[in-house]
């Protein structure tokens, strides 16, 4: 059963690299926010997988819960911040 978690974790890392491309190459700032949100939700499940691999599940479950909360608050704060900032307007005044 341990191999299943290992391979699932590796596959999640591959998916995170793919969504990292969107975070880097996103035309507008909010596309980068989508990439970050996608990576954040994958990290939460990856944390619990790692917890299972290291047989210390209680510790990693708490970390994953804290990470899920932080991811949510970060996305909210970033979207509220980029709503009014001038930078966003320059990119799509085409």
């Amino acid at each position: 059963m341990e191999h299943v978690f290992l391979y699932a974790g590796l596959y999640l890392c591959l998916l995170m690299f793919l969504s990292l491309y969107r975070a880097v190459a996103g035309p507008t700032i909010l596309d980068r926010l989508i990439g970050t949100n996608a990576i954040g939700s994958k990290t939460t499940s990856l944390l619990i997988l790692i917890g299972l691999m290291y047989h210390r599940v209680e510790m990693f479950v708490d970390i994953a819960l804290a990470y899920a909360m932080l991811n949510f608050i970060t996305v909210l704060a970033a979207s509220r911040y980029f709503q009014k900032r001038k930078g966003l307007y320059d990119e799509n005044t085409d």
Binding site: L30, L33, I34, N37, F72, V75, F82, Y89
Partner: peptide, 15 residues
């Protein structure tokens, strides 16, 4: 909800 916040910011920014 987080995705909705992103959409809200996008609409307000005029995308």
């Amino acid at each position: 909800t987080a995705t909705h916040a992103i959409v809200d910011a996008g609409v307000r920014a005029g995308l």
